[in-house]
């Protein structure tokens, strides 16, 4: 069976893998019609390659001359660092992304922790445990009630921030706190 035009054209271009190329070659040697088709392809190729072409040298020189100043300008300017493409393997890019996310998470946790109450526990040589807590107080009465319910507490010292400013509204709360302090003693 004769090969179709596409196959013969690919065979002519030596683009057919070996076992198949050998079969096509054997066939074309024995088939007059296919030999003629191949001969036609050869003639066409000879016609294409025999066709005169304009000399490229004058255009080559003119273009080189025209490009010369542009080439030097480009090299003088240098290749911009920010426009340089960097090839990074996918696993490395994924690892970098994970690292960035981890750092971001750590930063977020640290920020949240800063806004939480700060506390230190110190054991005195006398055997008394001193607990220092720095916490934002929104409800002073609730705090006092909470402290009142702790029977183990011997002494409570409430230190106000130095730069605090208070508005006098109704009965002064800190007086009550002082009373409370006395009561605990």
């Amino acid at each position: 069976m004769c090969p179709d035009g596409e196959l013969l054209s690919a065979f002519f271009d030596a683009e057919i893998p070996l076992p198949w190329a050998e079969r096509v070659r054997e066939h074309t040697e024995s088939c007059g019609r296919c030999r003629e088709r191949l001969e036609r392809l050869r003639s066409l190729r000879a016609l294409l390659h025999g066709d005169p072409e304009p000399e490229h040298q004058p255009a080559f020189e003119r273009t080189r001359e025209a490009l010369h100043s542009r080439v030097w300008r480009s090299f003088k300017r240098g290749r911009s660092f920010w426009r340089t493409r960097v090839a990074v393997p996918l696993p490395a890019a994924a690892a970098a992304l994970v690292l960035l996310l981890g750092l971001g998470l750590l930063l977020a946790v640290a920020t949240v922790r800063l806004s939480l109450p700060w506390m230190t526990i110190r054991r005195q040589p006398t055997g008394v445990t001193e607990v220092q807590v720095a916490a934002p107080i929104k409800d002073l009465e609730a705090l006092l009630r909470s402290l009142d319910s702790q029977p183990a507490i011997q002494e409570i010292v409430i230190t106000l921030p130095e730069e605090s400013t208070f508005l006098i509204m109704g009965e002064p709360r800190m007086l009550r706190a002082a009373d409370y302090h006395e009561r605990v003693r």
Binding site: T63, A66, L67, R70, V71, R79, S80, R83, T84, R85
Partner: peptide, 12 residues
Amino acid sequence: HEAFVKYIERSE
């Protein structure tokens, strides 16, 4: 000429 200009202007 145009193709080589593009080549020169290519950053990488």
